[in-house]
Amino acid sequence: MYRPNWIELDGVVNMRDLGGMVTTDGDTVRPRRLLRSDNLQDLTPESVEVLVSRLGLRDVVDLRTHVEVAKEGDGPLRAVAGVRHHHHTLYREDSAESGIPAAERALPWETDERRHAATGAATVASEVSPEPPSEPEQRRSPGQSHDEFWSEHYLSYLASRPDSVVAALHAIASSDGAVVVHCAAGKDRTGTVVGLALKAVGVPDDLVIADYAASAERVAAIMDRLRVKPAYAANLRDKTVAQQSPTTDTMRLLLTTLDERYGGALGWLDTQGWTPSDTERLRRKLLDD
């Protein structure tokens, strides 16, 4: 039975260690290798000390957009020598190059909301809140369930920015210490990348699904954090905990779709130039003593 290894630190509410998961071959994901988290902007000096000195943090994989980073500013880990930062946005049109400063631009999912309202489209593969957006019925295709909608949404990350997804996995594999993957809430973008990493080293579906769904325990606290943040406050004003909570069926459908379309996560990675030596490097990182 899966039990989340929560890391309780001041400044985050959805951080956990993926150590302890057992692969189909009987190997075990080692502690202090791969962490996942919500936004790291509010970490206290004491929390930073725990991450760096006690947990051995060496790399941060930031999946937020350029707009989020600009509006939220540099987090405290940016000032820590020896901690490398890898920024890999999962939105195709999100760029640091624009005539409008990033801090003044709308978030990508807000732009998608406006486009949806203007065109009357039936469904939009976009985030309408940090992680995940709310789920108004008109955003789904007729007959499409919540879980079908969101599994397709996560696949859109792979379609829109496969370069960022693969780069994030390379950053995990190349880290010489603990690496934390995060976005805003630490659920959807983070869940997709972490899920691929776990599947690539042989973690069974049931554990990947259980870890993904564990974030539901922290959704109320996540929303409390983000509602007072400049980048997210207005967009979260009318969202509910129920709308924001992940379910097991969403990740199950995502993994099933990867199996059906590509023969699994490694099959998709193979289409992006990922090699068996990359897989072995990731396995050494996460599984070796």
Rank of each mutant, 00 (worst) to 15 (best):
D176I: 07
A197D: 09
Q244W: 13
L43M: 07
W150G: 00
R105D: 04
G73D: 02
S160C: 12
R32E: 12
H170G: 01
L107R: 12
R283C: 13
L253K: 06
A96E: 14
M251V: 07
Y91S: 05
D270E: 15
E131T: 04
G19A: 01
Q41E: 11
S160W: 12
L90A: 09
V50A: 08
R54Y: 08
A231H: 06
A171F: 10
P246L: 00
S245M: 09
T257P: 00
H85G: 11
W6I: 01
I100P: 09
D163T: 10
L236F: 11
S277H: 15
N14C: 08
D278K: 10
R92H: 15
G267M: 01
D74T: 14
L269K: 01
W109D: 03
R78A: 10
L254Q: 00
R225I: 08
V128R: 08
L57G: 01
S145R: 03
D42W: 13
T119D: 06
T119E: 12
S174K: 06
R227C: 00
R218I: 13
A168G: 14
R92C: 07
T28N: 07
L236I: 04
L207P: 03
R58L: 14
D17N: 08
L287V: 08
L51P: 07
W274P: 07
G143A: 07
V22W: 08
S53N: 15
K229I: 02
G120D: 11
V203N: 10
D62P: 10
S175W: 09
S156W: 12
R140I: 06
G264Q: 02
R16W: 04
R218A: 10
G19N: 08
I222F: 01
R261P: 02
L158Y: 08
V165I: 15
L43P: 00
D62G: 08
A102Y: 13
E280A: 15
E68T: 12
G267T: 02
L90E: 06
H86Y: 13
I100S: 09
V241I: 14
A197N: 10
R227K: 14
G143Q: 05
S156I: 13
A96S: 14
Y91V: 14
S164I: 05
H85E: 13
S164F: 09
R16F: 04
D25P: 00
R36H: 06
